[in-house]
């Protein structure tokens, strides 16, 4: 039996070649959006801490543990003098059970385990598509096709050019960037 695969969708790109994701450990990837300075600062802070844990204990944290750690740090920050304004999507494969996980975390540090998610304007355009076409047994090929439908819809409806998306997939073998056709022209309806 093949292990099912998680599909991560990197957020939209404002800088033409910006990478709004950070790999937290071998099998977890985090995508982020929010206030300009906060995002990278927070992402790299948790990235460093998750990696520190892996070095000290010689084990990879599973996605649930990483998600709860990230949420904890964001929740702590929320009630501080200057909270981070960061929205996160955290995807990964559990190294022991080989099951995919996806977590939705907003800047208030609300954590929800979900089958598919989006942040920002993408929510309004993509969630309805995902509601209709996603099913729990979806494979990578179908997932990429669905992602294509989402980006098409964004191109069709969003008044801004978000310079395409950066797509990374997480499998039991780790994280890898995949080619994605961002040059496809989609006409507005």
């Amino acid at each position: 039996m093949a292990a099912s695969k998680a599909i991560m969708r990197g957020p939209t790109i404002i800088k033409a070649e910006d990478d709004k994701t950070r790999q937290l450990n071998k099998n977890t990837l985090m995508a982020f959006s929010g206030e300009a300075g906060d995002t990278v600062q927070f992402a790299e802070f948790v990235q460093a801490n998750v990696q520190l844990y892996s070095m000290r204990n010689d084990t990879e944290l599973n996605p649930a543990a990483v998600a709860n750690f990230v949420r904890g740090e964001l929740a702590r920050s929320l009630r501080s003098r200057s909270p981070y304004t960061v929205n996160l999507l955290l995807g990964g494969i559990d190294p022991t059970t080989q099951t995919p996980h996806l977590y939705w975390i907003d800047y208030l540090a609300s954590l929800a385990s979900v089958p598919y998610a989006a942040h920002g304007y993408a929510q309004y355009y993509c969630l309805s598509l995902l509601d209709k076409h996603h099913n729990p047994n979806i494979d990578l090929e179908q997932g990429m096709k669905l992602l294509g439908m989402c980006t098409d819809e964004l191109k069709r409806r969003l008044p801004i050019d978000y310079k395409g998306v950066l797509v990374k997939i997480i499998t039991k073998d780790g994280v890898k960037e995949v080619d994605f056709d961002n040059d496809k022209i989609v006409r507005s309806a």
Partner: peptide, 11 residues
């Protein structure tokens, strides 16, 4: 109530 506090308080 507020979901983040539902998470925090349950934890």
């Amino acid at each position: 109530g507020l979901a983040t506090d539902v998470n925090t308080v349950s934890d």
